[in-house]
């Protein structure tokens, strides 16, 4: 069963239909603006539901299949509902060498979910990601737009508490 938070994401109650229309207004007819348009919509909807993809296709005059193709190609887009906060753990070599897997295990333990899942309260989604470009302070994670580096398992509970 879906939790209220996830349900909210699914119906997009935080992003009203007319809000999407007003986002798309500035991109109307601009095929090259697909990625910026998806960024803007995801910002208010938290993910890219099919209904929004259809509207984007109409506004930008591209096929829906292309919108879906682009939305599923890039890792920063999601066509599935996600938690309020996205935790992205870098799994590339520099972080791997310095213990990224310990960080992943601790996050899974603290959140009670596996990689790719969302917590029951809809607050966190845990994902793995390729290099975040903060290898000088590896291992690193990003929560939404904020990077955390030089991580060890014992730092995780404190970091998560800022978002709970």
């Amino acid at each position: 069963m879906e939790t209220p938070e996830v349900e909210k994401c699914r119906t997009g109650s935080s992003g009203q239909p007319d809000e999407i229309d007003s986002i798309l207004e500035k991109y109307r007819g601009r095929k090259d603006a697909l990625i910026p348009a998806l960024y803007d919509i995801q910002k208010v909807m938290n993910y890219l539901p099919e209904s929004a993809a259809v509207k984007v296709a109409e506004a930008l005059e591209v096929p829906v299949s292309k919108v879906y193709g682009v939305a599923t190609f890039y890792t920063l887009f999601s066509v599935k509902p996600r938690g309020k906060h996205i935790i992205r753990v870098c799994e590339s070599a520099p972080c791997h060498v310095l213990g990224a897997m310990n960080v992943v295990k601790e996050l899974e333990r603290e959140l009670g979910i596996k990689v790719g899942e969302t917590t029951k309260d809809g607050r966190f989604t845990l994902e793995l990601t390729s290099c975040l470009g903060t290898c000088g302070v590896a291992p690193a994670i990003m929560i939404d737009d904020v990077v955390y580096g030089n991580l060890t398992a014992d730092k995780i509970p404190h970091i998560l508490s800022e978002y709970r």
């Binding site: 990625i35 910026p36 960024y39 920063l76 887009f77």
Partner: peptide
């Protein structure tokens, strides 16, 4: 300024151009 959306391959110049045109990279 144009923002990418998370795809390593877009560092390849023609993939980057595809992405800028609004396509899969």
């Amino acid at each position: 300024v144009r923002k990418g959306a998370g795809a390593y391959v877009c560092g390849e110049e023609t993939a980057l151009i595809e992405s800028m045109e609004g396509d899969r990279g």
